[in-house]
Computed example of a mutant assay.
Amino acid sequence: MDFNWTEDQQAFRQKLHDFLASTLPDDWEEFSKHGPASPALTEFARGFCRQLAENGMLFPHWPKEIGGEGLGPWEQQILAEVMWEWGEPRGGQYMNVNWIGPTLVKYGTEAQKAKYLPQIASGEMLWCQGFSEPDSGSDLASLRTRAVLDGDVYRVNGQKIWTSYAGLADTCFLLTRTSDDRKKGITILLVPMDTPGIVVRQIPSLIGEGDIHEVFFDDVVVPASQRFGEEGQAWEIIGFSLKNERLGIPRYHLARTALDRAVALLQEAGEFSRDAVRIEAGKCAALCEAARTANYAIVQRRVDGLDVGGESSSARYNTVMAERAVAEFIVEFVPEALTEGQPYLKMHHQRGIVAGIAAGAAEIQLNIIASDVLQLPREPR
């Protein structure tokens, strides 16, 4: 097995770094610490993603027939790693290229693809995902937001919570209940966020400006043409989408970059010679590389045309462990960096402390690993 990047892949990574170095403002690290969902960064991302699109770097892994460069899963991973290393200047639009676009291609009607794909491709459209609910969390099968078909429209009532980007998003990828069947009763609607009856409230948090919200739907009228897939098909569609989402956020790469910066600060201060510091740094580095290897194994499955199952949850949980370890290392050994002139480490810390919640709670990932990978019985024998 060859663990080296090809010359073309190395050139692609360098091309991305060069573009970011020449395009992002000089105060980017200070600017980006406010969070990817802050109004300022969201507005910046619309212009920045337009520049990426114009230079063939927004979705190079998409097929050429829908505007991409026809590159493969490894280039998709390189793109995500570089963007996260630089603090994700795409803001919430990483969702568009990682999973919303590919999901539209696979399951959308021709009218939906014609409407939404050009908007995504222009680099100016922001989505949010209406998944979690107050009493559901990551247990999507227990959601209660109800959509009732009334002629040629659905009437939607319910509430979502922890919804990233909802305050500034154009469209919501909304999970609703259309029957009482636990899984087969869930249906997806694509809902414009300016539809009457939608109320968005920001939830104050430690992770940055405007990152999470609760969203209320009060007799919201959605045309039946905005249904995505068939009624009851959401569980299949979300399974496809989440595999792309969980692997499309290489937090392990951001964590490793933050760890390297923290170690450099300790070396400058003459503090890295202590055994306790070096041992903990080594553990963090090992966890980051274990997470990288787990993610890369799944990328290779894609290259080989193999299905990806519960292994994506295993890779996701490895990444959570790495993120948490690095965040704790910085708090323990370089706490002053979070307040004194190290915006990159502050940015990482804000994102690291929610690593076990965003993109699916860590506990849910462990349940999936137990049932789908290890095939453990749900009840003790």
Rank of each mutant, 00 (worst) to 15 (best):
L345Y: 09
S136C: 13
Y154F: 14
P134M: 02
M125A: 13
E43P: 05
G70W: 04
L345R: 06
G239F: 05
R227F: 05
A358R: 15
T178I: 04
G91S: 02
A141Q: 07
M57W: 00
G270Q: 03
K160T: 05
G305V: 06
A21D: 15
E69A: 08
L140V: 12
G229M: 03
A80L: 09
G248W: 01
G360Y: 04
I353G: 07
D170M: 07
P343T: 00
D135P: 03
C128L: 00
R261L: 13
Q365G: 06
V221Y: 02
P250V: 00
V299K: 06
S273I: 13
D219Y: 02
T195Y: 01
E328W: 08
Q202K: 12
W74T: 12
F19A: 08
H253Y: 12
E88V: 13
D181N: 12
I368G: 01
G92Q: 00
G197D: 01
R324V: 10
L242R: 14
L41K: 07
R278K: 14
L254P: 09
E43K: 10
E245C: 14
H17T: 07
R146W: 11
P73Q: 04
D260C: 10
A294P: 07
G309A: 09
Q300V: 13
D27H: 04
Q10Y: 03
Q10R: 09
I100R: 04
L20G: 09
D139T: 12
Q342C: 08
K33G: 04
G87I: 00
P25F: 07
E88W: 11
A53C: 06
V215P: 05
E209N: 07
Y165Q: 05
L126H: 08
G68A: 04
G123C: 06
F217T: 02
R378I: 11
W99Y: 13
E332H: 13
